[in-house]
Design a binder for these strands. Structure first.
Lengths: 162, 162
DNA sequence: TATTGTTATACTCTATAACTATA
DNA sequence: TATAGTTATAGAGTATAACAATA
């Protein structure tokens, strides 16, 4: 059924996963210590900092898989005053999530330290050429993964991806 | 204090994190569905499948950060009959973890499907050149990260890394 | 009927601190 | 005194299923 991965694929896969695990731990520690938020919450806020407004479904896409998981996180972020949720004029079913000034301020406050961790841990030991290659490769990989249908979707997924 | 990441670094970082998140979700789903184990448990078993025997500390290294977290996982794996824990003759304080035949069998049973997910989601859309570059870059990155001292170590970390 | 989102619930994972035992 | 590991506990995260409301 499944052909084995080439040794080099296995090597790449394990190195990739372990690196990201290490990086994620470090980054989570920084976010928790300096901002009191989790990595998922940071991702949500970072998305909103770019887009200003997103529906719950659009926001969940690629960050949190289950709808209830996002509802939970949104509740926490709303209670912390970092986002607001309002009805959507176009579609009455939808909820529009907006980042608040406090949310923006938090992201801006956290970003330097966040970036410092990532730089120290990963990019400082990487040549410009490697960096460029990595960006290219992973951008393509991400786009490919996004386009893949989930292997066993229990509910709906992946809508309004823009 | 912290200089901003170059745009390309940011692009690489976010693409990397999102890709791995998507990959991890897919892989976790497969492992849970076909083997009833988590990704962390898979990682532990996969390590043991290679090394046969490791101390708790060596096993924790790079997979689970807290000692109690590993004790918890080891207990679950032991209850499931996938590993055994015995005293270490060299150092009476240490615990040696050994993978059982059932553990090996499980890993071998899961590996094809696991690999299939990784291949479909990531490597099928990657050229041989990209694969090679990725393996090189991430191997170096991992080694660099492993060598970095944790930013705020609460207890001990990183021993007997071999 | 399908989709958006919420709620309630249960489960898993992880970390912190206190503890035992050995080096 | 420092290290290896366990335990107890508490907190956070996520998913499932049932639900309400809209398309």
């Amino acid at each position: 059924m499944a052909k084995a991965l080439e040794p080099e694929q296995l090597r790449a896969y394990f190195a990739l996963m372990e690196s990201v695990t290490l990086l994620q731990h470090a980054v989570e520690r920084q976010l928790r210590a300096e901002g009191g938020i989790s990595y998922v919450q940071f991702q949500l806020l970072a998305r909103l900092a770019q887009a200003k407004q997103l529906t719950m479904t659009a926001l969940a896409d690629g960050v949190v898989y289950s709808r209830s998981g996002l509802t939970h996180q949104a509740k926490l972020l709303e209670q912390a005053g970092l986002i607001t949720r309002t009805g959507c004029p176009d579609d009455q079913r939808a909820t529009v999530v907006t980042i608040t000034d406090a949310g923006l301020a938090l992201i801006q406050r956290l970003m330097p330290g966040h970036i410092e961790v990532v730089r120290d841990l990963m990019f400082d030991a990487m040549s410009d050429r490697d960096l460029h290659a990595l960006a290219e490769i992973m951008t393509r990989a991400r786009d490919h993964m996004r386009a893949q249908p989930p292997r066993s979707a229990t509910g709906r997924r992946r809508r309004t991806a823009g």
